[in-house]
Design a protein around this nucleic acid. Structure first.
Lengths: 159, 159
DNA sequence: GGTGAAAGCACCGAGTT
DNA sequence: AACTCGGTGCTTTCACC
């Protein structure tokens, strides 16, 4: 998991692909004044190095009827059950991400649901997992996602 | 923000593109026994409808030297300052997402940092925002991201 | 709303500098 | 490591169903 060396050209390629995965390599090449072949080789190298893990679509879950987001803190009866509980949590499709954490909670997860009723059902599923002592829910009233590009620029500045 | 009607074919197209945005339309067409032109038209329609917002690369931040994830709960002096504070928070590049929440915290955010030292600096930036009373940090020891496909399947089942 | 063919490009590997 | 170039194959449009 070592820090990987990327140069300015790699940064700019990632920059364009982060905004739109399907940006033609020829467009990137034109902008960076290099050949499309070079873009191709560099992307391939970053894929082989595991820097680029994959690509995914960003969907509007609100439009799909899933506007409800909440974070659920999970308290365990016994921390030795962490692994087991984490596995059970990951079987629930509406849990988008789960963390083992220090601090207040043992496990901490994000859920995406249709509405409060649906969220309640999901939280009940969490509560029902063996080893879960209790849960604490925080409902998101508003989500603001920071620009991925901005984070990358900050990372690049330090490389 | 109405619920949008997608048919089985759309589901399967999204299914393949979620796994890999660059899946050739010809491959999708072959698998679904339709023409590549049809795949193209359907994807375009989903883009125009705003279901597909965009596409992005998944990067390995660990390999880039950013292995540290934490969630920070923010308490405000006064909830009327929420909007202002949220704007300031979003100016910090290492904050990847911020939420206005009900429950324990007023605002809740996720940060990505190089290490504990770096995380401390970011949390100090949060503490320094005018209107922030105090913060509470939960450090992620392990992140497990649920399969995006699994959520989509659950959503599709109900459409 | 779908098709199939055709034109236009992009991808990607080979060979070169 | 990057370039050019050419074969292969993908995308996108369009007339037609």
């Amino acid at each position: 998991m070592a820090k990987f060396k990327l140069d300015e050209t790699d940064h700019q390629i990632l920059d364009m692909l982060i905004e739109n995965t399907r940006t033609p390599f020829t467009d990137i090449a034109k902008k960076l004044l290099i050949s499309a072949g070079t873009v191709h080789v560099r992307v391939k190298k970053m894929e082989e190095a595991g820097i680029i893990i994959g690509s995914s679509l960003t969907l509007d879950y609100k439009k799909l009827g899933y506007a409800f987001i909440a974070y659920v803190g999970v308290f365990l009866k016994n921390t030795s059950q962490t692994k087991f509980v984490l596995e059970r949590i990951n079987e629930i499709p509406f849990v988008t991400v789960a963390h083992v954490t220090t601090g207040k909670f043992n496990v901490f997860c994000k859920i995406r649901a249709k509405n409060t009723q649906h969220a309640k059902e999901i939280i009940f599923l969490l509560d029902d997992i063996e080893g879960v002592y209790r849960t604490e829910t925080m409902i998101s009233l508003e989500e603001s996602i920071n620009d991925k590009k901005r984070l990358m620029h900050s990372i690049f500045k330090e490389m």
